[in-house]
Every structure is written in C-alpha cells, then in structure tokens.
Measured scan of single mutants.
Amino acid sequence: AMEMGLACVVCRQMMVASGNQLVECQECHNLYHRDCHKPQVTDKEANDPRLVWYCARCT
C-alpha cells in the first residue's frame, strides 16, 4: 500500500482542511481523514500527541 502515498484510504484524497487532517492508525498504518473515518475522529484524539490512535477496523 506504500504506493498510495499519503492518501486517505476512504476517499483516496490527500487534501487536508482545517479540522480534517489525516490521522494514521498505529496498527495497520492506514491514513484516514477525520471526517471520513466512522466514527469521526475528535479534536481531542487528533490533537493529543500522546494518544495512540487505532482505526475502527483495528480497535
């Protein structure tokens, strides 16, 4: 999947907007926009540098 680069696995886009940054699952290393992931990634989750985030598939 490395050839995908830094794109969201849901929408396949790399564009990021304020409040909709890409977050990386620490287990599978897929990237998700906060708005694309279900459930939506919260501000607290996205902005906490100590948080280890896992996508819905890996939790």
Rank of each mutant, 00 (worst) to 15 (best):
M2L: 12
E3G: 05
E3F: 03
M4A: 10
M4W: 02
G5L: 04
G5D: 14
G5H: 13
G5V: 06
G5I: 04
L6P: 10
L6V: 13
A7K: 15
A7V: 08
C8E: 00
C8I: 00
C8L: 00
V9C: 14
V9S: 07
V9L: 04
V10P: 01
V10D: 04
V10I: 10
V10L: 06
C11T: 00
R12I: 01
Q13H: 10
Q13L: 08
M14E: 14
M14P: 12
M14I: 13
M14L: 11
M14R: 15
M15S: 15
V16P: 12
V16H: 14
V16A: 14
A17V: 08
S18G: 12
S18P: 15
G19L: 10
N20G: 09
N20I: 08
N20V: 09
Q21N: 09
Q21H: 12
Q21F: 08
Q21A: 11
Q21I: 08
L22A: 14
V23G: 02
V23K: 05
E24N: 03
E24Q: 08
E24M: 02
E24F: 02
C25E: 01
C25L: 00
C25V: 01
E27N: 11
H29K: 15
H29F: 05
N30V: 06
N30W: 08
L31M: 11
L31A: 14
L31R: 15
H33S: 01
H33T: 00
H33K: 02
H33M: 00
H33L: 00
R34P: 15
R34Y: 14
R34M: 12
D35S: 10
D35F: 07
C36N: 02
C36R: 01
H37I: 11
H37V: 08
K38E: 12
K38F: 06
P39A: 03
P39N: 06
P39C: 14
P39M: 04
Q40K: 10
Q40H: 09
V41G: 04
V41L: 11
V41H: 01
V41Q: 04
V41K: 03
T42Y: 05
K44M: 10
E45A: 08
E45W: 04
E45G: 04
A46Q: 08
N47Q: 08
N47F: 05
N47G: 13
N47E: 12
D48L: 06
D48R: 06
P49T: 13
P49C: 03
L51N: 05
V52W: 02
V52G: 13
V52T: 13
W53Q: 04
W53A: 07
W53G: 03
Y54K: 15
Y54A: 07
C55Q: 00
C55S: 00
A56N: 04
A56M: 11
C58I: 00
C58V: 00
T59W: 02
